[in-house]
Design a binder for these strands. Structure first.
Length: 171
DNA sequence: GCCAACGTTGGC
DNA sequence: GCCAACGTTGGC
């Protein structure tokens, strides 16, 4: 059986709403509520095992603060069917879902968060979408492997951390 | 709080 | 299909 190469991603969250620490606390979370078609398309092309950068946005110091991994296949975002949810969307039906989710788990916090300013200041990183005016607002972004590795290096994590199976200690 | 950038909606 | 109006995101 052949496996497709891992893709790398960047997921944004406002720390006031759902911080990286919350993902560590929860151990696993559904990444739902994405209501942008480009971001949706990225979500839908994720595969279990794909690593991602966890980025804090709309806060005093926007930064990549941790990494995690996708742990499910993409599936219809249940909040679109829930009329009590703020993300309810009557245009989506179980037969023809409009919005998608994946489940994610934390891998590790970055010992040194990599700030947006640092990304822009680094010749190897400044091409990242998150640093571009055109990409800054996209909440689910693809990340090049070289960029992913570089962020880990600047953040003080060995690259092997993202490759291993489960690195969090059992609790 | 301001504002630039961009996505979405809806009239035509 | 075009485009103006509007809403949202997110850095500063």
């Amino acid at each position: 059986m052949t496996r497709r190469a891992r893709r790398h991603w960047l997921l944004k969250s406002e720390p006031d709403v759902y911080a990286y620490e919350a993902l560590e606390r929860d151990g696993r979370a559904r990444w739902d509520g994405v209501r942008n078609y480009t971001a949706r398309n990225h979500l839908r092309s994720m595969s279990p095992g794909d690593p991602f950068l966890f980025y804090h946005s709309s806060c005093p110091v926007p930064a990549v603060v941790g990494i995690g991994r996708v742990v499910s296949e993409p599936y219809p975002d249940p909040t679109q069917f829930d009329c009590s949810s703020p993300w309810f969307d009557p245009r989506g039906s179980p037969e023809q879902p409009r919005w998608w989710s994946v489940d994610v788990e934390p891998i590790a916090a970055l010992p040194h968060p990599v700030t947006l300013a640092a990304i822009r200041a680094d010749p190897l990183l400044r091409a990242m979408l998150v640093a571009q005016p055109a990409g800054a607002r996209l909440s689910v972004q693809p990340v090049e492997r070289t960029h992913f590795t570089r962020v880990l290096r600047l953040g003080g994590l060995p690259a092997s951390v993202a490759r291993g199976a489960r690195t969090r200690p059992p609790s």
